[in-house]
Design a protein around this nucleic acid. Structure first.
Length: 937
DNA sequence: CCTGTCACG
DNA sequence: GACGTACGTGACAGGG
């Protein structure tokens, strides 16, 4: 029978249940692995009681639990600040959200969430549909926003007070009937959801006004008739805001849903499924209750009495590293039967550690040699695929070794598992493996990465390479790569490794990875960095994978012409320099140069470093050149050209991928402790721009034919963050007014008007502004500005006098670091500062690093958030994201779509901090378009 | 493999 | 009173 008259639909507000469960219960964790499950437990309990309590004639025939989809809803498009002052969900609640969905399904109740919509809208749509079909509806929630739906057979049930609410109940609460609830809410606003409303008007006044004028539109059109001046002004001055508020509180009854009300029919729990879920969560009481109630067999649960009865605690899963490594126990997979058994096992467990072995380190070029997997500590395997004998046959190719499955067959067999959303893949630096697999048409997802886990947990404490992590956390030294492949000229590729050795090495890596995961994953909650890992690290990795695969086109001819040009100029300079020196020597050797300058020519200022060599850095050469010495000036010219040639125009050519004609850098997500990334092979984050000569190198980075490069960069983002975190009103105001921030600083400090300011004065203020971000010192500023140290210190003193908040911020940050041994960004990223308590010169370093890290790190977090949202934002546009340079993103775009892309990207970048963090300063992004990077920047 | 130098934000 | 200092990176050449 189709849904309609005589049916009774229950719509349960799931999110309300979760938060109530979370706050009502003490923090509870799953015994076996420490996963927080308190809210899941409370939620499950509520569902259990709900089901048990709903028997008899009034029982629902149809039911659904509705959840909020995480992230923004369409309301944020209407009003960006909507719900902006909501604090983020508690750290230990976040991992429980998906589990509450699992719980709902385990109870065999429909579980509904829709991206871009709030639970309230889904409830509204379903309740309208059911009402129109002639059925009864009960909304189980205590959220007053849902009261507008009441009437015509729709009621609410407040689960807290167990009280039914009908039209009379609504009138009691809002002073108007359900049809006018939206009008009252639009006027009164809501501080919890950040709905603005009309200032000075609350629910009581709003109801009074609506009752007098009939509805909101009439009220607004006749606002001038209101006698009380305050009310009248508030309504007239905020008409637009009130209308926006109405759009915000009005629920959407016309959503397109891809299921029918029929599908929500109540079927009653499937006992086996329910008990299995409860057992997995280790909810002993509920398992007992459910098994007894439904008469099914209880599954095995980890022994709970062990620690309670005083016996030795079980260490098996809590401390997996205590299980010794046995390299000979690893399995060599040589037939399909074994492979199928492994895949079955993986499906049963729901996760697997994976590692690839390849011909080299360039993931865009090298071929796969084998794959290793691990499902529990000590249980690992290796699937060799293309190991070769090294016995050149007549055709110059090596023959495949025995005991290997065909590569295509293995890939096709693994692909469904590697792509299965229900199987968690675990890797160490999985971006590399994902890139390898991508070349075989496998999109690995979802995945956890032990390197990223360690980074979220331990930034500042140590590096996150697998060997180091294994030593530190597993007390185990892995087989060194050198031992397997050798090094230097005689190094072999992995396909030449004898299979027996390869099994031990490769499977060991997967084993280590799995064990690290078992330690790190639960540690996220303990260290309060789950959100950092889940929102800033894990989702970024696939984005980087795609960017690296995109690559950027580089014009070899442009580079090679520049190289020749540089070579000629350098030869000329070299001759000139040796003429001046009166002898031949290697200009590129700082040691030889120092001897020429200070021993032979006896120039002043020779200082020897700890190695006994003269220092010949650019600052020293500059001093000498300033005194009129020709040779050091020419050496400076030579060095600039040498740098440009060797590092850029020569080296970049070798990175052009022969298959794609493009350069594919590799981003190291864990590259900088602050949260910044680094780029390598080649480093595309340090392509010259400051000097005229060097900037030309950017002309070699070009758009493909018919396309353009566009570059968007954050304008002074670190200074804006400083203004926000240090709460400097004058700086904030200057940014809001769009003033020249360095000129404003100069004006404050030196009491000079901004109009007609001496550029030198502005330059000094700019240097101070940057110095502040770096944890300023008189010496550093003096060196940068080339002024006496006393004078620099005077500037700093004056600066702190004018901006006392900055000094306060710096002192507070250092104090925080000393107390906690870490500092954190606005998004909760922790940067550990173990050196902060040190005595001696390191102390100064640590202090400045601690001051800088939250600022640099917050900026890094913001652009990460933008990058994570970018694939969705440009999904329907002909654009590809290619590069990130700390505060800049570079895209390649079809020529006619540049404006549309800029608009979309700008929007994402400028709002990237929201809704997690709302800055008191505007974030601004500048954009440029060109056929090459020099033009676009 | 380490150091000095220099390219970037 | 002396000492040594801007923050964060990666690549290259020279030299042991």
């Amino acid at each position: 029978m189709a849904f309609g008259k005589g049916h009774h639909l229950h719509l349960i507000d799931g999110s309300a249940f979760i938060f109530r469960a979370y706050h009502a219960l003490p923090p509870l964790t799953r015994k076996s692995d420490g996963l927080p499950v308190g809210a899941v437990s409370g939620f499950s309990n509520m569902l259990y009681r709900y089901i048990e309590g709903n028997t008899g004639p009034d029982a629902p025939t149809h039911a659904a639990v509705i959840f909020d989809y995480s992230g923004k809803s369409f309301r944020n498009d209407i009003y960006p600040q909507y719900k902006a002052n909501r604090p983020p969900a508690p750290e230990d609640l976040i991992p429980q959200f998906p589990l509450t969905r699992d719980a709902t399904r385990a109870f065999n109740i429909s579980c509904i969430e829709v991206e871009g919509f709030e639970a309230d809208d889904i409830i509204a749509t379903l309740s309208c549909q059911a009402r129109d079909a002639g059925a009864r509806v009960t909304i189980i929630s205590s959220d007053k926003d849902l009261m507008q739906l009441i009437g015509d057979g729709v009621e609410m049930l407040d689960p807290m007070k167990n009280k039914r609410i009908d039209s009379d109940g609504v009138a009691e609460k809002f002073g108007v009937g359900p049809q006018r609830v939206v009008d009252v809410q639009a006027l009164a606003g809501d501080s919890v959801d950040n709905v603005p409303g009309a200032p000075g008007i609350g629910i009581k006044t709003a109801a009074l006004l609506i009752n007098e004028y009939g509805d909101l539109d009439t009220l607004l059109s006749r606002a001038s008739e209101i006698k009380q001046p305050k009310r009248r002004e508030s309504l007239i001055n905020n008409e637009e805001l009130i209308r926006i508020s109405r759009d915000l509180v009005k629920l959407d009854c016309d959503m397109d849903l891809d299921f029918t009300l029929d599908s929500l029919e109540v079927k009653g729990p499937d006992a086996d499924q329910l008990v299995e879920f409860l057992a997995k969560m280790e909810f002993r009481t509920m398992v007992k209750r459910a098994t007894e109630r439904y008469g099914v067999e209880a599954p095995d649960l980890p022994d709970a009495s062990a620690s309670a009865s005083g016996a030795a605690p079980q260490t098996q899963s809590a401390v997996p590293e205590t299980k010794p490594f046995d390299l000979d126990a690893y399995e060599h997979i040589r037939d399909m039967g074994a492979l199928e058994r492994w895949i079955d096992d993986i499906y049963e467990r729901g996760y697997v550690a994976v590692d690839t072995e390849t011909m080299g380190l360039d993931a865009m070029q090298v071929d796969l040699v084998g794959v290793s997997m691990c499902v529990e500590a000590g249980k690992a395997c290796y699937i060799p695929l293309t190991h070769k004998a090294g016995d050149d046959d007549l055709f110059g190719g090596d023959s495949l070794v025995e005991g290997q499955l065909p590569l295509d067959l293995v890939i096709d067999t693994l692909r469904p598992m590697l792509q299965d959303p229900s199987i968690m893949k675990i890797g160490q630096n999985m971006k590399y493996d994902a890139k390898i697999f991508a070349r075989y048409d496998v999109t690995v997802a979802p995945y956890d990465d032990t390197m990223l886990l360690s980074y979220a947990l331990h930034a500042g404490l140590h590096n996150h390479g697998m060997d180091a992590l294994s030593e530190r956390y597993l007390n185990h030294t892995p087989i060194p790569t050198k031992e397997l492949l050798g090094s230097g000229k005689s190094m072999i590729t992995f396909d030449k490794v004898e299979i027996g050795k390869a099994v031990r090495y490769a499977a060991e890596d997967a084993d280590i990875t799995l064990r690290l995961w078992q330690i790190f994953k639960p540690k996220l909650h303990a260290e309060q960095v789950t959100t950092v890992y889940e929102t800033l690290e894990r989702p970024l990795s696939p984005v980087l994978t795609q960017m690296e695969r995109n690559g950027i086109k580089v014009d070899r001819d442009v580079l090679s012409r520049m190289s020749n040009n540089f070579a000629q100029k350098m030869a000329g300079l070299e001759a000139e320099i040796q003429e001046l020196a009166g002898q031949e020597f290697n200009v590129g050797s700082p040691k030889q140069l120092g001897e020429i300058l200070f021993d032979k020519l006896e120039l002043p200022g020779g200082k020897k470093g700890k190695t006994g060599a003269y220092a010949t850095g650019v600052d020293i050469l500059e001093d000498l050149a300033a005194e009129g010495h020709e040779l050091p000036a020419r050496v400076m010219d030579w060095r600039q050209l040498s740098k440009l040639k060797s590092t850029y125009t020569d080296a970049l050519q070798t990175f052009i991928n022969p298959d794609t004609g493009r350069v594919h850098t590799s981003y190291i997500q864990t590259g900088a402790v602050t949260g910044r990334m680094s780029s390598s092979d080649p480093n595309l984050q340090n392509i010259p721009v400051r000097s005229e000569e060097g900037r030309k190198i950017r002309q070699a980075f070009v758009a493909d034919s018919g396309k353009k490069l566009i570059s968007l960069d954050y304008s002074q983002i670190e200074l804006r963050i400083l203004a926000h975190v240090a709460k400097i009103d004058s700086l904030k105001q200057a940014f809001k007014d769009g003033h020249d921030i360095h000129a404003m600083t100069a004006s404050e400090m030196f009491d000079v008007p901004i109009e007609g300011m001496d550029p030198m004065v502005r330059r000094q203020a700019k240097a101070i502004n940057f110095g502040v971000i770096y944890g300023i010192s008189g010496f550093g500023l003096a060196r940068n500005l080339r002024i006496p140290r006393k004078e620099a210190q005077g500037f700093i003193d004056r600066y702190f006098e004018r901006f006392p908040g900055i000094k306060e911020y710096m002192d507070e940050t250092v104090a925080f670091a000393k107390e906690h041994k870490y500092v954190e960004t606005l998004f909760g990223r922790k940067i550990h500062t173990p050196e902060i308590a040190a005595k001696g010169p390191q102390a100064g370093f640590a202090k400045r690093a601690a001051i800088n890290a939250p600022i640099q790190g917050t900026a890094a977090d913001i652009i990460r958030r933008a990058m994570i949202r970018m694939p969705d934002a440009i999904a329907d546009l002909p654009a590809k994201m290619l590069l990130q340079v700390h505060d800049e993103l570079i895209f390649e775009v079809d020529g006619n779509a540049c404006d549309a892309v800029i608009e979309a990207v700008k929007d994402v970048m400028e709002n990237a901090a929201e809704p997690a963090v709302h800055l008191d300063v505007p974030i601004e992004v500048d954009a440029g378009i060109g056929d090459n990077w020099a033009e676009a920047h």
